[in-house]
Simulated assay, not measured.
Amino acid sequence: MTYLTPILVGVLYAAAMSLIREPHRRRFNAIMVAGAGAAYLSGGGFGGWEFLATAVITYVAYRGLESWTFIGIAWLLHTAWDLLHHFKGNPIIPFSHDSSLACAVCDPVIALWCLRGGPSLFGLVRGRSARTTNTADVTPPA
């Protein structure tokens, strides 16, 4: 469950974001990852480095306002910060020891979705079922 639940959370995040139409979906996700980049500020596990990490992730998220690739990169940067916090023993949720590890498993799922251009998961499912239906209707050449 340590790994499965965060993966499901990442997929559910992408599904929920799929309800937002473009270009708003991309911009909203840029704001979300910028917020995630500031999640460790209150814990201060790495002192002043927390501000630098937040600044870098915020800048990359800002570039993500116009690019899904930058949003994906920002989620991967957050993943690296999650792992550092996990190994240091300074989790994102102080009373949940493995919360940073869970975040480090969830974030790459979101990053992969973003690096694919943040497509609507519902559109992908509908497109796949439509292709299957259309393929069945095609008669092979004689």
Rank of each mutant, 00 (worst) to 15 (best):
W68A: 02
W81Y: 12
P91F: 09
G44Y: 07
I31N: 05
T79H: 03
I93V: 12
I73K: 09
A14G: 10
G64C: 12
L8R: 05
I92H: 00
P23Q: 03
A55E: 05
A53I: 13
V60E: 14
D82T: 04
S18E: 06
F51T: 01
A74I: 04
N90Q: 14
D98N: 15
F95W: 13
L19E: 00
V11Y: 06
L84Y: 02
G64T: 13
W68C: 00
H97W: 12
F51L: 14
R25D: 07
G47R: 07
W75V: 06
P94R: 05
T58C: 07
A14F: 08
I20D: 01
L76S: 10
A74H: 04
P23K: 08
N29S: 14
G89C: 11
M32Y: 03
A53L: 08
D98P: 12
H24N: 06
I73Q: 09
G35T: 10
I7E: 10
A61C: 11
E66G: 14
E22M: 07
M17K: 08
A55P: 04
L77A: 00
N29V: 04
T54C: 10
N29R: 05
A34W: 05
Y13T: 14
F28D: 00
P91M: 09
I71D: 07
H86G: 01
S67H: 10
K88I: 01
P91N: 11
E50N: 08
H97M: 10
L84C: 09
H97A: 15
G37M: 03
H86K: 01
D82C: 15
G45N: 06
Y62L: 11
G48R: 08
G64H: 13
E50W: 05
E66K: 15
L52Y: 06
A74R: 04
Y13N: 13
G10D: 05
W68E: 01
H24F: 11
H85R: 00
H78V: 02
A61Q: 08
F70E: 12
I20S: 02
G64M: 11
G37E: 02
R25V: 06
I93D: 04
P23C: 06
T54S: 11
G47L: 05
A53M: 13
W75D: 11
G72V: 10
V56G: 01
V9Q: 09
A39F: 11
L52P: 02
R21Y: 04
L52W: 07
H85K: 01
T58K: 03
P91V: 07
N29T: 12
G43P: 04
Y13F: 15
A16D: 00
L65F: 15
G48E: 07
L41P: 09
V9M: 13
M32Q: 09
A30R: 10
N90T: 15
T79G: 03
H24Y: 12
A30Q: 10
I7R: 11
F87T: 14
H24I: 06
D98F: 14
A16I: 11
R63F: 00
G89Y: 12
W49H: 05
E66S: 15
W75C: 10
F87R: 13
A38H: 03
Y40H: 15
L4G: 09
A30F: 08
F95T: 15
N90V: 15
W68Y: 01
F51C: 01
A36V: 15
G43Y: 04
N90L: 11
A15M: 07
